[in-house]
Computed example of a mutant assay.
Amino acid sequence: MAASALNASSVFLGSRVATPSTRRASRSKRASKVAVRAKQCEESDLMAKYPEGGPVFRVSIDCTMGTNSTGIVMKEGDEGRPEVSAIRPGGTAKNKLKIGDVCLGVTYTELVADPNNKTLNWGTPQVGWFDTEGEKYQVSIAAMETNSTTLDMIMFRPE
């Protein structure tokens, strides 16, 4: 699928779809750095809020080759939550997700300072859960893109 055929608000995990207006804007002014910290949820709280069964399910997708390798293309859904708009052939999400699935919760990875760790200069990776309810679409996508080995998601499949 060509980039021009995608909805301008669609995001292929691992890379952004550039539109003519975003290309012009990036040339004319420098992007300012914005630090976004995901609102962490406990896994047990999230699983209690969204119990598995019926249309709600949990899925683990391999992303050891980067989130781009999942093949998931997301768009902003009706409530602002990420919704699967396509799954690219050969992606690790093939046969795990379907078009229209909505992301309720997702794991994210952050690097935290650990004075006991002398080998990892950037920090120790810590995985947390992020609830997409009431959050901006871009923040949910950013949380997904931080994963480096496994992308765990709680999904809703409309019937």
Rank of each mutant, 00 (worst) to 15 (best):
A35Y: 04
G90C: 03
D101Q: 04
G80M: 10
D78P: 14
I99F: 09
S44N: 11
T132W: 02
R30F: 08
K29M: 05
G66C: 09
R37V: 10
C63G: 11
R81M: 15
K75I: 09
D101E: 05
I99K: 15
R30M: 15
G80T: 14
I87S: 05
N121G: 13
V17S: 02
V73Y: 11
E43P: 14
G100D: 08
P125I: 05
I72S: 02
E43R: 15
V56G: 03
I87N: 02
G66H: 15
S44T: 08
D114G: 06
R30K: 15
D101Y: 02
K96R: 11
Q40W: 10
G90V: 01
S60F: 14
D114K: 12
Y50T: 04
D114P: 10
N95G: 06
T92Q: 12
D101I: 02
E133Y: 13
R58A: 13
A86V: 01
V17Q: 00
R24F: 00
N116Q: 04
R24G: 04
T70L: 11
R23K: 07
V112N: 05
R27K: 12
Q126G: 08
L104P: 07
F57P: 12
E76H: 03
G123H: 10
S69M: 11
A35N: 05
E76G: 01
T124I: 07
K29N: 07
I61D: 03
M47L: 10
E76K: 14
P51G: 14
S85H: 05
